[in-house]
Design a protein around this nucleic acid. Structure first.
Lengths: 152, 152
DNA sequence: AGGATGCTTTACGTTTACGTCAACGTCAAG
DNA sequence: CTTGACGTTGACGTAAACGTAAAGCATCCT
């Protein structure tokens, strides 16, 4: 029950412990993120993460954990993995040239449109749900005040 | 380009034209909702919609359009079709018994939790996107004020 | 009459996102 | 040294959500 939530902030500002060198095994990340080894490797196959290799074994750094957080949130939001990859790749690109930066800004614009529609969809769904609940509850109250209610 | 948006309100209050009897063919609904025949029939196979049958041909009523709106929004939010089915089925159940109503209210509770987390996820993603855009733009301004900028 | 169109069913193909073995390497503990 | 525990690479399986013919009716148009 005491699950250490792997909520990394995207930027590390903790200079007290220069803990940016911590590493994790595949079992540890799979466990903390509540996914399987297979899933972790699958994300690697799709180039969503790229852990270090010590010989043949995979070593996961903070960077991979940050990416996994973004991946899983993207999944919760229903994005396909390929799309998620392009998004999180966007987040840590060199951004050297101005043309490149403008391209990135374009992408950001598209992403925002996408996310804003999702937000509207969520809001609408929640509002409908609320209204429906009100109707159900008023109906339930009516039933409670009528005969034949055996408090089933 | 002049696409009639099939934005039905869930409840019909338009008593001027008792247009609740309009019907559509599969081609019409597929076209208006920008999906294929196959998709429409697929939703029928999964009991997400159940159009009338005139002989062998399918006739779609307002009810099907309402459901299609809910289905497509559910898809945009990343819900699997089976889950969508249980949700929209919930919305038009008999709700006869009190026990049934309580069950429905329970389901509503679960759904709301789910949707609220999605909302948080969307908000977080939007906030990160905004911050990232600000960084990109400030970076772009720096580039514009330095030599070597050939306005690529 | 004879296409051309539109709708139908049947059925196999495809993509995504993993699940599930199988078979093998490796390293510390008994 | 061998037994686990943990890791690795294939490679095939699967469920969801359609795509994509293929082949058959029905009707409408000229």
């Amino acid at each position: 029950m005491t699950r250490t939530d792997p909520a990394d902030s995207t930027r590390a500002g903790d200079s007290g412990t220069p803990s940016d060198s911590r590493t994790w095994t595949i079992a540890q990340v799979a466990d903390e993120f509540a996914i399987t080894h297979r899933t972790v490797r699958h994300y690697e196959e799709l180039n969503l993460i790229s852990p270090e290799r010590r010989g043949t074994v995979r070593i996961y750094h903070r960077r991979e954990r940050t990416r996994l957080n973004l991946i899983l949130r993207g999944k919760r939001l229903g994005f396909p993995l390929e799309e998620i990859r392009t998004i999180i790749d966007l987040y840590d690109e060199p951004t050297g040239q101005a043309s490149q930066l403008r391209y990135v800004l374009d992408q950001i614009h598209d992403r925002r449109g996408n996310l804003e529609r999702r937000r509207r969809d969520v809001e609408d769904a929640l509002n409908e749900l609320d209204e429906f609940e009100r109707r159900c509850q008023s109906h339930l109250r009516q039933l409670a005040q009528q005969p034949g209610s055996l408090s089933t």
